[in-house]
């Protein structure tokens, strides 16, 4: 419950802060709240990976780019086109109404964690499955990461025009 409120609050902070650095910091907070939520679902491995990959790697990348581009300028950030804001609010309400309607109109009725929940959340069980039934997707993902790495380096090196 606490984690849920924290997660929603930090998510809202993320999209409302004008300064990109404080938005990034709220996003880090959000990732930690999600880690707590994963732990309440007894998914230890995912919780650990969440901290390492998101709060560690991805956010360092984001903050590094923010620093590199020197985006702290407040007067540059006089943003918001009004029509865009209205459209966003409309779209958001619509989407929220749809999803929450779907969830509430047909409750799943599952109130207890599965008995195996703690067993499947461990690194051992994840690794076991990852290297047996999910071996091919695993290799494909490693290839994807390699391609992304090379692509990122080339994109960042080259001039646009």
């Amino acid at each position: 419950m606490l984690f849920a409120i924290g997660a929603i609050a930090s998510a809202i902070f993320t999209i409302t802060r004008r300064n990109p650095v404080s938005a990034a910091m709220s996003l880090v907070g959000h990732f930690f709240m999600l880690t707590g939520l994963y732990l309440t679902l007894s998914a230890e491995f995912v919780a650990a990976v969440q901290v390492l990959v998101y709060a560690g790697a991805i956010m360092v990348l984001v903050i590094f780019v923010i620093m590199l581009l020197n985006l702290g300028n407040e007067e540059q950030l006089t943003e918001r086109v009004n029509m865009r804001k209205t459209f966003g609010a409309l779209l958001g309400t619509l989407l929220a109404a749809q999803i929450i309607f779907m969830v509430t109109v047909k409750p799943t009725g599952m109130n207890e964690l599965s008995k195996q929940a703690a067993a499947i959340g461990t690194t051992e069980s994840i690794g076991q499955t990852l290297f047996t039934s999910y071996l091919f997707p695993f290799e494909a993902v490693s290839l994807l990461l390699l391609a992304a790495l090379i692509g990122a380096v080339i994109l960042a090196k080259r001039q646009l025009q």
Binding site: I8, A11, P20, R80
Partner: peptide
Amino acid sequence: LSAVLFVIGTVGVVTRRNAII
């Protein structure tokens, strides 16, 4: 909760101008 977070993300994508955000 996940639906709410998803909607917040969508609104962020649509309303913000800064590509990093």
